[in-house]
């Protein structure tokens, strides 16, 4: 989807992407350069490669894996996490963390269902306005007042869920989506793939452009890489931070709203632990938790990887919940270890 070198130039090593020029003095050096390029590729597309491997495995091992219906089920259920993880990618690259997204997701859904009584526009505007405002507030606290993102967004996680419970009468009231056009936004779409999937693809493409091709994107990398240096170079650190949390809040609210459209109701028990899934997807996708490195395509591969792992577990179909957790945990370790090993081989060459 994007140019891999665009990420690597801003990469962990800080080295420019290697180029195996025709002027290589010897064949050995040429081979080394090729190996190094391969190392780069593996590190930054580790999630994509593991995803590919798992997909091949699934196709061979299970008849019902590589069917249109099953693949559709995977992308449809992954799309909501993908939208949340997209915002999380910006936050983590900027060196922060956003724990409030799970709560914003469920709040967005409840508000969308509530707003749908007044039509499609209200169903979208209400969650975006509220979740955006909360994201903005968190951004201001983190950016302007210099508070720790972990604490600010942890407060958001608790407070926003409380707000949702207040709106939904302690979770006892489930608002049903009244507006047919809004429900259709979550349930219909071209080629048998629902709109949230297309919206995710469009947003991810926009995210790639925003991160790689705009000044804002450069600032996000710069702030995450070294905040003081960025500040000295004249990067608007405060504004950049505020904007990433605003973006994350808006996307979490949007994902919640689209999910409410899909379920035709503002379910109040959603989003618990969603922030951890989003963070996991981002990290699996090659974005460093310390900030400054990462990209959107990796995150999307990470989201799909989580979806495929769950699907494969369901394909087996007789694992107990305990074993399921062990298996998905083990897979995550495997991916991260693979990335680590690959990046070390690359440094050695």
């Amino acid at each position: 989807m994007t140019d891999p070198t665009a990420i690597t130039t801003d990469g962990a090593t800080g080295r420019p992407a290697p180029s195996a020029g025709p002027s290589s003095p010897s064949a050995d050096a040429g081979a080394a350069a090729r190996r190094e390029r391969l190392g780069h590729l593996l590190q930054h597309h580790g999630a994509s490669l593991v995803l590919l491997g798992l997909a091949v495995f699934g196709t061979v091992a299970f008849d019902a894996f590589a069917t249109g219906a099953n693949l559709r089920a995977i992308v449809v259920s992954s799309s909501f996490l993908a939208i949340v993880a997209l915002g999380m990618t910006f936050v983590i690259i900027s060196g922060g963390i956003d724990l409030s997204v799970g709560s914003l997701f469920v709040l967005g859904g409840v508000l969308a269902a509530y707003g749908s009584r007044a039509g499609l526009l209200a169903a979208l505007a209400l969650p975006l306005a509220v979740c955006g405002a909360i994201g903005l507030l968190q951004g201001v606290l983190i950016g302007r007042l210099g508070m720790a993102p972990f604490i600010v967004t942890l407060a958001g996680l608790l407070g926003v869920r409380g707000l949702m419970l207040a709106v939904s009468d302690e979770g006892a009231t489930t608002y049903l989506v009244e507006d047919r056009a809004f429900a259709s936004l979550g349930q219909d779409g071209p080629f048998g793939v629902t709109w949230p999937v297309w919206i995710t693809v469009a947003l991810a493409a926009a995210g790639v452009v925003l991160l790689q091709r705009t000044g804002f994107g450069q600032n996000v990398y710069a702030v995450g890489g070294n905040e003081e240096a960025a500040s000295l170079m004249g990067v608007p650190v405060v504004r950049t931070k505020i904007l990433v949390y605003l973006l994350s809040g808006l996307l979490a609210g949007l994902a919640g709203a689209l999910n409410a459209a899909r379920l035709s109701s503002g379910v109040t028990i959603l989003g618990i632990g969603l922030e951890l899934d989003a963070i996991a997807a981002v990290v699996i996708g090659g974005t460093l938790l310390t900030g400054g490195v990462g990209g959107v395509t990796g995150t999307m591969a990470g989201v799909l990887l989580l979806g495929v792992i769950q699907n494969l577990i369901n394909q087996v179909g007789n694992l107990t919940s305990a074993v399921q957790q062990v298996v998905s945990g083990a897979f995550l370790v495997l991916v991260v270890v693979a990335q680590r090993v690959l990046s070390r081989t690359q440094r050695l060459t």
Binding site: A64, A73, N314, G317
Partner: peptide, 25 residues
């Protein structure tokens, strides 16, 4: 051919689980 899924108390996962069961035929 009994297929058992477990949503681990996550409603989104339960919806996805059942949709995947349908996709499995």
């Amino acid at each position: 051919k009994l297929r058992v899924t477990n949503a681990q108390s996550q409603f989104s996962k339960q919806i996805a689980d059942v949709q995947q069961l349908i996709a499995q035929g």
